[in-house]
Design a binder for these strands. Sequence first.
DNA 1: CTCCAGGGATGAT
DNA 2: ATCATCCATGGA
Length: 307
Amino acid sequence: MKFTKICAPDFDLEKTLDSGQVFHWQRTGNGFVGTIGDLPVYVDQDNDILRAKVEGGAPATPRTRCATKIGSQELAPPVVDLVAHYFALDHPLAEICDSFPKDPVMNAARDFCRGLRIIRQLKWECLATFICSSMKQVAHIRQISLALRKRFGDQRKIDNYLVYAFPSAQRVARASEKQLRDCKLGYRAKNLCGTARLVSCGQADLEAWSALSDDELRKQLCALPGVGPKIANCVMLFAYERLRAFPIDVWIERVLRQQYFSRRRKMTAQRLREFLERYFGKHGGYAQQYLFHHARVSSRNSTARTE
DNA sequence: CTCCAGGGATGAT
DNA sequence: ATCATCCATGGA
C-alpha cells in the first residue's frame, strides 16, 4: 500500500502525540503506529508533509466493513480527511497562539510547543482513558491503555505492526472488575466499569451531549463515576473540542502558583478558576496544554536521564 | 527504600 | 464551601 501525502503546515506530529493528551501511539523508527477509531494507522512527518497509511480505510473499500465512527457515515472517509480531521489540521493555530496572553511564562511555552495541536479524539475512548489517568504518570497511563486494548480490543495489522482498537463501552461493561484490575487499573476499575455501563445502556449518550453548552456538558460528565472537574475538562478539551476548557492537574497548579501567584498567600480554587477564565480566554485549553507540555519536558530534562 | 503521579469520592468541619 | 483521608500501582 502506498502513502497518502497530506499538506500539514504549522504542525508537529511528535510534540502532538507526546504531550499527554493521547496515550496509545507508538513510535516506529521514523513515525508512529496507532488507531483512529477502529482503523489501524501509520503516520510520519517530513517537514510540512504528513505521510499516512490506513489499512482498510481507502475510499475504494466496498461498504461492508470498517465503517468509521467519524461523522457516523457508512462509508469510510478518504484517508486525507480522516487524518486531517483527527489531527485538527484545520485549527487556525497562528490565530489561537496569538490569542494567548503575552507574559514571559506563556511566551516560553508558546515558543517551545510550536506546532502542537489539540487533536479530535473519540469520545468514549478519551473518557475511558482519562478515567484511568487519575494519580498516574503518563508512562503508566500508556501501559493501562495498551493493556485494555490488548485484553478487550480488536487486533489490527498495519505493515508488520500489531495495533489494537480501544474496546467499546459494551465490551468494557461486560468485563468483570477482576479482569479490569488485571489491566493494572487498581481502584479505578470500578469507576471505569460503572461509566461503561451507563454509556452502553444509553443512559449517558456521549454523542448527543455534543449539543450541550459547556456548563451542561461538564455537569453531565461529572455525574459519571470516576469523573470530576479535572477529567471532565480533559474530555471536553480533547474529545468535544471545547477549547476553553482548562484542566487543572498537579503540574498546571504548580506552574500557576509558582509563576503567576508566587506572592499571593491565599488563592482558593474558586478564585483560581475565575482568573483562568478571564486571563487565558477562549483558547484557554490550548494555553493550558502548552504550559503543561513545556513544564513536563523541562522537568524531564532537568533530572538528567538517559533513555 | 521513599516519593509521587494529567484525581475523585466520601465524610468531617 | 473548604479540608483530610483513602484509594492501587509502578516509575524514578
